[in-house]
Design a protein around this nucleic acid. Structure first.
Lengths: 204, 204
DNA sequence: ATTTGCATGTAAAATGTTACATGATTGC
DNA sequence: GCAATCATGTAACATTTTACATGCAAAT
């Protein structure tokens, strides 16, 4: 998985929004970047410790109100610098692993109904995503209109909207194409053909 | 990474194209599904051994021509059944981890030039992908027009084309938006604002 | 009372990439 | 002769998820 652990940078980014605990970060991730970037506690807590050791963030144990112990982390100047440096660096292309396409690539061995069902399920997910994005957009405009980060958040949201819309169009085109194709059926047999070698490359 | 190791199914899929070695599979992956599904030797060889042990494929050691030893694997009926079963099963949504969007999400803390540079680099990659896909498409039509799998391969290629085209449009829109925004600059300071909690969710 | 949420963390397992070891053969 | 490619495999490392352990506080 390449030499790249971006969790520290995600943490630094969220800490620019204000001091907070690991738990807070996790919650924030879930309600903001989850659609294109997620983090689990198993990554978060070790990374917080490392960032503290490296002096990019400061930890402040709090047991004040209610007596509930919390570790509150704040970003410092070195942390802000590390964040900015990362933002200027070349960005790794996102790794893609689209199981749907792998299934469809071998779709010749399935009956039409199976292929259709897979595409339809994917399409429904895309539609649900779009509905969710619309709700998020409305909520952002309602509750966050003053925030300086809002334009950037909206740009990432727009990415999701365009992406999903394009995939829905692909689903519709694909369904139409599938209807024109002979219905295979998954009967074994036919004997693997021998002209497989070289040049079959395909998209994404 | 969730209970899902799809490598065996990828292998089974490729073996439907004919008997071949692990090395052959790796080559085929590179020139066909690499854009949406890749495999490394570190996954391939252990998975081939496991599939053989489980009786879904058969291994045949060859030392024939030239004396070069090769292990040729063939899918059998149980393997074909396992493949078809997987193709009918619900498909996990692809995991997304888009570093570009994470950077842009915190773009408020960068100067405009940095944000622009990141988007432009991404756009260039999308354009290169599209050019590559066009070459693949031409090659497929030229060399593979007889193959029964071709329509399905073209569908996965179309996915990549639509995806990249949509992302390019997003890049253009984003660049226009960035030009309207005040140029931040990465100076520390400003003090993290305190109204971060709840409702910031965004797209993809 | 009991569930839900707050809160921190660790351990183990799954998954995946990269680098290495090894050696044959083919084309220049 | 030498580089490239064929060919198989392992080991180490990196990354990430899931499950668990632990316990307090607030709301129903």
């Amino acid at each position: 998985m390449a030499a790249s652990n971006r969790t520290p940078f995600a943490i630094l980014g969220f800490l620019t929004l204000g001091p907070m605990s690991g738990y807070d970060i996790k919650k924030l991730v879930e309600e903001s970047t989850e659609n294109f970037w997620s983090e689990s506690f198993g990554q978060l807590y070790p990374a917080l410790r490392k960032l503290t050791e490296d002096g990019l963030i400061a930890k402040q144990a709090t047991a004040s109100e209610g007596g509930r112990p919390r570790n509150i982390y704040s970003i410092n100047d070195r942390g802000r610098e590390a964040l900015a440096t990362w933002q200027r660096e070349p960005t790794a292309p996102p790794p893609v692993r689209i199981e749907l396409l792998l299934k469809l690539f071998f779709g010749e061995h399935c009956d039409r109904a199976t292929n259709r069902k897979q595409i339809l399920a994917y399409r429904e997910q895309m539609v649900r995503d779009l509905e969710r994005y619309r709700a998020i957009r409305e909520r952002l405009h309602r509750d966050r209109s003053e925030n300086a980060g809002l334009p950037y958040w909206l740009l990432t949201l727009r990415f999701g909207e365009r992406d999903r819309a394009a995939h829905i169009e692909w689903c519709d085109e694909t369904l139409a194409v599938l209807d024109e194709l002979p219905d295979g059926g998954s009967e074994a047999g036919e004997e693997g053909n021998p002209q497989w070698q070289a040049s079959t490359q395909t998209g994404t």
